Simulated scan of single mutants.
Amino acid sequence: MTAQTEVMASDFVVPTVDISAWVTGGPDEAKTRTVGELDRACRSVGFVQIVGHGVPAEVTDGLADAIDGFFGQTLEDKKRYIRPAAENRGYSPPKSESLSYSLGVDPVTRMNDFFEAYNIGVGENTWPESPLAFRPQVEAHFREARRVAETLTGIFAAALGVDPGFFDRIAGHSIDVLRMNNYALEPGEIELGADLTGMGEHTDFGIVTVLWADQVAGLQVLGTDNGWHDVRPADGALLVNLGDISARLTNDVWMSTLHRVKPPVVDGTIERRRSAAFFHDGNGDALIETLPQFVPEGEEPLYDPITVADHIAAKLSGSRSGHKNTSAIREAARVLAAQ
């Protein structure tokens, strides 16, 4: 059974949208069709399988090699690259984070997410000494993922009815981060009686996320039926989802969808899963206010204005420092309703 038929069996569908017309400069009719398809996906699911993105296979193959090479090292060697949580760079060991805290929701145990990660982004980075190919392979994917994200925001501008330069103004010097995740643990480290959490329930922080991932079970998306549904990337596709900034801009008409990772346990061990999420978050100093066309007459916006930097700081303080984010009231309520 394919990943897509598995999703459809539960009446939950992640739409597939071909963006090639926007990548290669296709005819206006094809571009218009893409705008409509992406707008419907953003309103109904918040997750999309993107094809026609133009990312070469050798780039994603190189990314996979880089992930394998770094995470295959000893924990002691990897811990050399830990940086302060507020910097959102470098290495994060297993069980050092709890993404559900970013929504103000208590996890099963305090910092219980069973994944390890490595972050790079715009500005200063920490690059591991080994493997030697890590930096060029990761930088190649970063450039491609950023291109895809910027292509998507061009389509977003058309779908939202704003001027073509709108996202250039709020994301022209965006806080972009690539987070590479690894969900493999050594045998014996798994408490089989616990509610294992590969990555806790969370929404992404920014405008849009471009995800490369293995076709391994684990990623689950919260549907409008308050049920969790398994999602895997289709062949050759990138999984794309909206973040909180897009929800704030549209007064929740576009969905910043809750998702999590529940790793499958096979013979007492967690099956390996790799992913790399590119977060296109927007300019740190950009003030995010709900677009007026999405606020019904006589009503107030669902969200107060906030800068991108302040929003991200509140979410990171929860996930990486263990402090509940008390401002994510709407998201927390959705998590609790699904439990």
Results as ranks from 00 to 15, higher is better:
Val240Asn: 00
Val148Arg: 00
Lys31Asn: 04
Leu239Asp: 11
Ile50Trp: 01
Phe279Trp: 05
Leu302Met: 02
Glu124His: 09
Pro15Thr: 02
Glu58Ile: 08
Thr153Asp: 03
Trp254Leu: 04
Phe205Glu: 13
Phe142Cys: 05
Asn125Met: 03
Ser98Gln: 06
Gly72Phe: 08
Asn182His: 14
Val55Gly: 00
Pro296Thr: 09
Thr250Ile: 08
Arg143Ala: 14
Pro15Leu: 10
Leu160Met: 15
Arg330Gln: 11
Ser98Ala: 15
His173Ala: 15
Glu129Cys: 03
Met180Ala: 13
Gly121Cys: 09
Asn226Gln: 15
Ile170Cys: 13
Leu258Ala: 05
Ala234Ser: 11
Asp18Gly: 10
Gly123Arg: 03
Glu201Trp: 11
Ser92Leu: 12
Ser174Val: 04
Ile67Met: 15
Thr2His: 00
Ser256Arg: 05
Asp252Ser: 03
Gly26Phe: 04
Ala140Gln: 09
Gln137Val: 01
Ala247Met: 03
Ile120Cys: 14
Phe47Trp: 04
Pro27Gln: 02
Leu316Gly: 01
Ser10Leu: 03
Ala332Phe: 07
Glu139Ser: 13
Ser100Val: 11
Val45Trp: 01
Met199Gly: 13
Val7Leu: 12
Gly227Cys: 15
Val216Arg: 14
Ser321Val: 02
Arg260Tyr: 01
Leu152Ala: 03
Gly90Val: 12
Phe71Ala: 09
Val335Ser: 05
Ser98Phe: 09
Gln293Asn: 11
Gly123Met: 05
Phe115Pro: 00
Leu316His: 00
Gln293Val: 08
Phe71Met: 13
Arg146Gln: 10
Arg169Glu: 12
Gln137Arg: 09
Ser319Pro: 01
Lys315Asp: 04
Asn88Phe: 10
Met180Cys: 15
Gly218Ser: 07
Thr60Asp: 07
Thr224Ala: 15
Leu316Trp: 03
Met180Asn: 12
Gly318Glu: 09
Lys79Asn: 15
Gln293Phe: 08
Asn283Lys: 06
Gln220Ile: 08
Ala9Val: 14
Val231Ile: 13
Gln49Asn: 09
Arg232Ile: 02
Lys79His: 07
Lys79Ile: 04
Gly206Cys: 11
Thr74Ala: 10
Leu239Gly: 14
Glu271Trp: 00
Lys315Met: 15
Gly200Ser: 13
Ala328Met: 15
Glu289Gly: 06
Met8Tyr: 11
Asp18Leu: 10
Arg273Asn: 03
Asp310Asn: 13
Ala21Cys: 03
Ser321Phe: 10
Val35Gly: 00
Ala85Arg: 01
Leu242His: 00
Lys31Gly: 03
Ala338Trp: 12
Val148Gln: 01
Glu129Gln: 05
Pro164Asn: 10
Ala86Phe: 05
Gly36Ile: 06
Glu150Ile: 06
Thr250Met: 03
